[in-house]
Simulated assay, not measured.
Amino acid sequence: MHFAPDTEIALRTVVNLINTAANGEDSLASVEDLDEFLEAEEFSGSRTHDEAELRSVKRLRSELASLWAADEDTAAKTVNKLLIDAQALPQLVKHDHWDWHLHATTPEAPLADRMGTEAAMAIVDVIRSQEMDRMRVCAADDCDAVVLDLSRNRSKLYCDTGNCANRAHVAAYRARKAAEGD
């Protein structure tokens, strides 16, 4: 399944945002951490650069994490709530180095509203395409990071936050070798 480029970018940003709280660690502990995250994600628009903004993004992160593991109906309700709360009005825009894509808020809207709306708009495409099963939690037993599977054969099981896939493959290899030795 291929989504529009802006949808894939927004979905990856959602994954990266949710995973800032993966495995009991919070890599959005400060306004500076948020600055770095937004720069890495190339997220534009106005900012207040204060603790209230950081708290609102963390609330959004929790809401998106719940949505990620939700059933389709619950996800749709959450998406609609995000869009209503931000008073979203979709429009086609072109800015910076980005070609035509959808925005549903103004650049002056609060950061969490802009982020939530972009996430919601992307997840709208996922729900409409009946591709919710591409939104997963890492298959590693000791990891709670989320995974976006955009592979053709739906085979992505592990997150990109650490070495989960490598550890799982090594463990399976060792288990096979141990079984052969019996």
Rank of each mutant, 00 (worst) to 15 (best):
Q87T: 11
E180N: 14
M121Y: 03
R152I: 08
A10F: 01
A29C: 02
D26R: 03
Q87L: 03
N166Y: 10
T7G: 01
S151F: 01
S151H: 05
A70R: 01
D85W: 02
A75P: 02
V124F: 05
F3Y: 07
T161A: 03
C138P: 07
D73V: 14
E108W: 07
E25Q: 12
S129C: 11
A75K: 02
D71M: 09
V146F: 08
V146M: 04
E32M: 11
T13C: 09
D26F: 00
L60S: 01
A145F: 11
V146C: 04
D85R: 07
F3E: 00
A104R: 15
A122K: 04
R167Y: 00
V79Q: 07
D96T: 12
D99T: 12
H97R: 15
L157Q: 12
T13L: 13
D96G: 13
C159Q: 11
S27H: 11
Q130D: 14
S66V: 04
A86I: 04
R12H: 11
D71E: 14
L157M: 13
D141I: 07
F43K: 03
L83N: 01
K177G: 02
A40K: 05
A122V: 00
R114A: 10
S151T: 13
D160A: 00
E72D: 14
T106V: 04
E25S: 13
A179W: 10
T7S: 00
R167P: 07
L92G: 02
A21Y: 04
W98C: 00
S66D: 13
D125F: 09
D35Q: 14
R59E: 11
L60F: 00
M1H: 03
H103S: 05
D50F: 03
R114F: 08
V93S: 11
V126G: 04
D144T: 04
G116Q: 03
M115L: 14
L148A: 10
F43E: 15
A145H: 05
L82W: 03
G45P: 09
H169V: 10
F37E: 13
R154Y: 03
E36W: 09
A168P: 08
R128W: 12
T78N: 06
L67F: 01
A109W: 01
S129L: 15
Y158V: 06
L102K: 12
T105C: 10
D133C: 02
T105A: 09
A145E: 05
E108M: 13
N80F: 05
I18K: 02
G45W: 08
A120V: 06
A119M: 09
G24K: 08
G162C: 11
F3T: 00
R128K: 14
E53H: 03
A168C: 06
A179R: 08
A75R: 06
H97V: 12
H97A: 11
I127E: 02
Q130G: 06
H101L: 03
A140Q: 15
T106D: 09
D99I: 10
